[in-house]
Amino acid sequence: MSTDLLTLLTDQGWALALAKGCALTIAAALGGTALGGVMGFPMAVLRWRAVPVLSQAVAVYSGLVRGVPGLLVIYLIFFGGVQAVETLLHLGGNSAILGFVMAVIAIGLISCAYSVEVFRAALQAIPRGQVEAALAVGMSDLVAFRRIIAPLALRHALGGLNNVWQMTVKDTSLVSVVGLQELMRVAAIAAGVTRSALVFYILAAALYLAITLISQALFLRAEKALNLSFGGRS
């Protein structure tokens, strides 16, 4: 059994394929989380400030995406959105990149819906007094936002963003059903070709676990470092 596994992994090259799959999974999750964060923060500010129309639009988007399965969102993007992306980004028909970009957009759209809620909660958690104090010492709205509100909100948001990241890593597995050769897809192909589904899906599970555990540890360290710079106690 163990020699079989070794043959599968080394002689047939599946270890390398799985490693490549891991790299794509991490890259897609990073891209998706970054896209979600970059879009999510301004959206959260719109919600926080209750900007008419825009605030409601964000609420509808976030509520819709958080209310339907990620798989359904991914089917929508992959079946329906390819042409739009190709036209917008003009990728010159490079399908490997296009597949990846589609995955990042699909995952980013989902991740963003959750990031909005995290950032909004973080903004709301800022004590009114701190904002008022900043304005009282003569800071302009913009300066107060940049120097006081945004840093405070980001710090409050870190725990929530950790959750979003963990979820996003796991969501990348859904992209496998539409063909991006990430970890889950490599495992599924290997399972089919070698007729060893159990082995390869357990391997995939172990690799996902490694990714989530290691990133979890990194997040905790970042949280500690951030708290220190705030003179925090923890």
């Binding site: 992959f78 079946f79 959105g81 390819v82 190709e86 399908s95 597949g99 539409v178 063909g179 050769q181």
Partner: peptide, 16 residues
Amino acid sequence: VVQSFSTLVPSMDTDR
């Protein structure tokens, strides 16, 4: 470009 069979025709429609 490798992807599951059922997505092939819809993707053709969209230039993959």
